[in-house]
Write a protein that binds this DNA or RNA. Structure first.
Lengths: 340, 340
DNA sequence: CTGTTAGCGCATTCAC
DNA sequence: GTGAATGCGCTAACAG
């Protein structure tokens, strides 16, 4: 038995396809009697409208794309969960685009815009090129950036400079002067802006405290626990090792903790560690960190996109989410613990 | 400037739309000269084929649906990462369906099958109803179950009975007899089969060791850390508290660890704890657990689905993934630690 | 090899 | 209110 089409329903109900379509779309201008005839035909034939056909003729895809770099990244996942939460209650499908490789990124951004694959786009932690912007604007594709910045796009951001400064100031307040920073790659193909912002925050804080910047104390590597572990190992085996390490992400901070354990260092006596994100694991490990509202950023981003899709904005808006220092055991001894 | 269509390209290149279509689809039967004419027209007009139209006329959506219960669940996320990894290299888009609520589930399963929303479907940790099966078969929708079981569908499974037995046997081997089990709800609207399997494993192991089943030592609650923490608290404040707790998931085991901490119990001396899954956090917390190949289950599931979509199977296959006991510090004292 | 044509299934005009 | 006709943009089958 082949799938029933709108035509089958029309024939069975003894009406025209137009009427069936009206019933499907809850048009008010259908007599109750015909409506029920159609509905029962639909029931009997077990009919269900074909999405694709509906999309083509209506010109809308009823789908929202979410562009995600490194889906294995804990903070990205958390943001995505917020997005899922919002979209699940909407009428839109969620199409997930993962861009691990740069070439994927370019191909995708080009296609998504010009092929009308989605009605709206959320871009996580990724700054689009200017040429992609042209495509979005030209295709009139509503898009919202989450955790990334571009003057021409609406966006959900956090103040990464402030966050990093706060982290480093916390270490300085505790008396540290040999403060290292393990960063993500600042020069990355994804144009990831938080990286340079946090670096700036690190530098500012040192400068404000008149602590000279020590190039040896700056390391960068992939956003990966193992790599951070190695970088931290290098730092901690310097002739004059740092007494505190600020890590770009909690994931990397965990690598630092492992390196400290490898070297039998006491936390926080021998080494203070502070991360960034406040992912769930940070709680269990009692990791001092900078909390950013990951989940909420996804929620806000999705909500904003839905609004924009309904009533386009005249110019991009920016929603800034708060950032907060969460002090736990990796920077301060236990008598002053913050309890989650 | 309106989007260019295939007709514009054809006109500009001075050929028929059929030829343009052939060029787009890399048909070998196009003369090199005409091909290049078409290609340059495409370039100049900045043309890019409309996905939806292509889908309608070809009858394929070039999309794969992934049905996910509770996207906030760590193990689900891990499996999904495996799926994403595979699909990113395919030509298929990934449409994510989250079903937190039961009503969503039913509506989705019905629609996905009958509306031809996707060419293939991956269902995570969810056992479809028989009536949904009918829809899949009728719609000839290739589907693969990951971490769920149904005789009519191909599936990636693990032996949950064996896994739970192994966990409990480990505790028994360590001399425990007062062994509690904190489970997910066995009666759940999602027909989640691992729940009953692990319960069976728990019971078997006790029985084989001639340890009487103590109803007081069985608790169930949501797959949630906080809830597990409360359940564990109840268990640990019994007049005769258990000396070991087996938790349905690592997430719940972490809740148990917190409860132990709340009560100032030493792990593993006062209480042994074993989880299930081996999520990343388990490593950091040195949690003894049953490892199942979460990521790999996603990879295998996606690969299997792609195969089935290419060449349909005559009957469902079952791929069983291994399960492994990972002993860490929450069950044994440190001199015999397993190091990750 | 290539142009033409007929749908794909539905929404949306129009007349009635 | 309702039916018939037109087109969304493309693929595929059919002639040439």
């Amino acid at each position: 038995m082949a799938e029933a089409t709108i035509r089958d329903v029309a024939r069975y109900a003894g009406v025209g396809v137009g009427t069936v379509s009206r019933v499907l779309n809850n048009s008010p201008s259908v007599a109750d009697t015909t409506r029920s005839k159609v509905l029962s035909a639909i029931e009997i034939l077990n009919y269900s409208p074909n999405q694709t056909a509906r999309r083509l003729s209506s010109g809308k895809t009823m789908a929202i794309g979410v562009l995600v770099p490194f889906f294995t990244n804990a903070s990205v996942v958390r943001r995505l969960q917020g997005i899922v939460e919002v979209l699940a209650d909407s009428d839109y499908d969620l199409v997930l685009f993962d861009v691990e490789k740069t070439q994927n990124r370019d191909k995708l951004l080009t296609n998504i815009a010009s092929r009308k694959m989605v009605d709206g786009l959320l871009i996580l932690s990724l700054r689009p090129h200017d040429r992609d912007m042209q495509r979005f604007l030209q295709a009139e594709l509503p898009a919202v950036l989450v955790d990334a910045n571009h003057p021409q796009l609406s966006r959900i951001v956090v103040d990464n400079v402030w966050g990093a400064e706060t982290a480093v100031n916390h270490l300085i307040d505790l008396g540290h002067t040999r403060i290292a920073y393990i960063s993500d790659y600042r020069e990355n193909p994804f144009n990831f802006s938080p990286t340079s912002d946090r670096y700036a925050g690190y530098c500012h804080a040192l400068q404000a405290a008149a602590i000279p910047y020590n190039p040896n104390y700056y390391r960068e590597g992939a956003l990966d626990r193992e790599e951070a572990r190695h970088l931290a190992h290098d730092l901690l085996t310097l002739r004059e090792p740092p007494t505190a390490i600020f890590a770009y992400s909690d994931t990397q901070a965990i690598g630092v903790l492992q390196a400290a354990q490898d070297l039998d260092l006491q936390i926080p006596q021998d080494l203070a560690v502070i991360g960034y994100d406040d992912i769930e694991t940070a709680v269990y490990l009692d990791l001092t960190t900078i909390r950013q509202s990951l989940y909420e950023s996804g929620v806000k981003g999705a909500q904003l996109l839905l609004e924009i899709m309904q009533t386009p904005l005249t110019e991009p808006v920016e929603i800034k989410l708060p950032t907060e220092l969460i002090v736990r055991k990796t920077t301060m001894t236990s008598e002053v613990i913050y309890t989650a």
